[in-house]
Design a protein around this nucleic acid. Structure first.
Lengths: 114, 114
DNA sequence: TTACTATATAAGCAAATTATTATTTATTTA
DNA sequence: TAAATAAATAATAATTTGCTTATATAGTAA
């Protein structure tokens, strides 16, 4: 059985996913946790812009954050009651492997090769 | 296999469904085609407001319209490539039977009982 | 034709959204 | 400690959205 989400909460999730940047972020986080500086490699926008999108997603309970040293890693919140809805939506959009490759190629969290 | 929708088109659909009124409309149309005056019974807003929401849904290819005499009936566009995504989303929201009852009780397209 | 009903469209406005730049906070490292 | 990096927050401007009121269009029926 599918999880049922209150209409108001569903609308909130859908509105948040109804933005290309955020939908892409969620598509990336489905595959891989990321910090802000990694996401920055993928989008043509500023750091505060990414942070603000992540904050909205976090406020809605859609993503988790975890600081590890200098970086704060974001990941999908699997515990959320919204999780089933989000995953069902993600099954309808193209995978974001291209973006993942961009992140791993630039590898912003590693400055030297050692 | 799930139908895949271009990220941009998916974002458009999600943004449109990210509004309580439109999400409810789509939930109702899943069960039953409706004309504007029927939908008006359910929402606390004006006729132009409902018409404007329907127009956006139509422009995005999510609903069909069909004039029958005085009334224009709206229904989900099952032909759309967006159909699979929309149906998967609707499985996560409460059914709108309460609203359907309101429509059928007030029965605005029938003025007399004959 | 005239009157009435259903719906669409237009114009205007207030609220919400998203990006930008500047600044602050937290952490690491020299 | 001071400098550098990562990220958050604040303030603001531009754009978008969703409502309202007023009006136009289309069909029905007297």
């Amino acid at each position: 059985m599918k999880s049922i989400v209150e209409l108001e909460n569903a609308a909130t999730v859908l509105k948040l996913l109804g933005d290309k940047t955020r939908l892409t972020i969620i598509g990336i986080l489905k595959q891989r946790e990321c910090c802000v500086c990694e996401l920055l490699e993928v989008f043509d926008t500023s750091q505060p812009s990414i942070s603000q999108h992540l904050r909205k997603l976090k406020d809605a309970g859609m993503v988790r954050e975890e600081r590890r040293g200098q970086w704060i890693y974001y990941s999908l919140n699997q515990q959320s009651e919204l999780s089933g809805l989000i995953e069902d939506i993600l099954e309808h959009i193209p995978d974001q492997l291209e973006k993942i490759k961009m992140i791993e190629k630039s590898n912003p969290t590693l400055r030297c090769g050692c």
